[in-house]
């Protein structure tokens, strides 16, 4: 049985089918990429899996448990973590505090202990801070630890979101365009990081437009078009699939041709 499996998932917005009858699954250590043209329903799919949207139909199973329609914080308790396409950073907090907040499930406790600054509260905070610092080191953000997050560059904030999502020690990690807006060096770092995280046994779900990145690291690719799954398979098979080429990769090729002309 798979760690995460999605079956017949669909949602409508005002009668428009944004996602329809999508099924796939992910195992520990796998990198499953969801690709497709803009508006294909990739982010909507992520929002359903992470509990932000309530699916109209279908079901989601996480580690054998039906988690369809479960709120995001309960999914977080079950080991599902995500990043956002349009950044969702805690702007007024420092970089370090953002990642400590990512440890919320490990550091939360009695509000009375927190207000009275009791040793138990300090211990929880300290442990979360140590964990957060280690993650910042790992993502090359340690030097910015005490800066206000709102003052950082876009590419840095992308990495900060990944650090925050990893703070949860997730079993399933959803990354929504982690390399968007990043330069080549940053993209390569994110590439390496995703592979590392997967190697540790995390099931990674990836939405990404950078096809080179997707083809290089995915174990498995799901292709969406107009909200429906039109193909699925390993990178080599998907890139040869005529429907995929027509719906997506072909369009990219055309864009490239236009750019050249």
């Amino acid at each position: 049985m798979s760690l995460l499996s999605v079956s017949g998932l669909g949602i409508e917005f005002g009668g428009v089918r944004a996602v329809h009858d999508v099924s796939f699954s992910a195992d520990p250590g796998e990198i499953v990429s969801v690709i497709g043209p803009n508006g294909a329903g990739k982010t909507t799919l992520f929002n359903m899996i992470s509990g932000v949207y309530l699916p109209g139909s279908g079901s989601i199973t996480l580690a054998g448990e039906d988690v369809t329609g479960m709120s995001p914080h309960r999914l977080a308790e079950r080991g599902l973590s995500r990043t956002f396409q349009n950044l969702q950073i805690f702007q007024q907090m420092t970089v370090l505090e953002n990642v400590i907040a990512g440890h919320h499930l490990h550091e939360r406790g009695s509000v009375f202990a927190d207000m009275l600054h009791l040793p138990s509260s300090r211990r929880r905070s300290k442990a979360a801070e140590v964990g957060a610092m280690a993650l910042l080191e790992r993502l090359g953000l340690a030097r910015a630890a005490l800066q206000e997050a709102g003052s950082l560059s876009y590419g840095t904030l992308k990495r900060l979101e990944i650090a925050r999502a990893l703070a949860l020690k997730p079993k399933v990690l959803l990354l929504d365009e982690p390399a968007a807006g990043c330069n080549a060096v940053e993209t390569e770092e994110i590439d390496r990081l995703i592979a590392e995280v997967a190697a540790e046994g995390v099931a990674v779900l990836l939405v990404e437009h950078d096809m080179k990145l997707v083809m290089r690291i995915s174990s498995h690719i799901v292709v969406l078009d107009h909200g429906e799954k039109i193909a699925e398979g390993d990178p080599a098979a998907v890139s040869r699939d005529p429907r995929v080429v027509e719906a997506y990769l072909g369009a990219h090729a055309k864009e490239a041709a236009h750019a050249d002309g």
């Binding site: 992470s50 509990g51 932000v52 709120s71 995001p72 914080h73 999914l75 977080a76 308790e77 973590s81 995500r82 956002f84 969702q88 950073i89 805690f90 702007q91 007024q92 907090m93 907040a101 990512g102 919320h104 499930l105 939360r108 925050r164 999502a165 703070a167 949860l168």
Partner: peptide, 10 residues
């Protein structure tokens, strides 16, 4: 800062 992000960290 971000209600949706707060929810997703639990």
């Amino acid at each position: 800062g971000s209600e949706v992000a707060a929810k997703t960290v639990g």
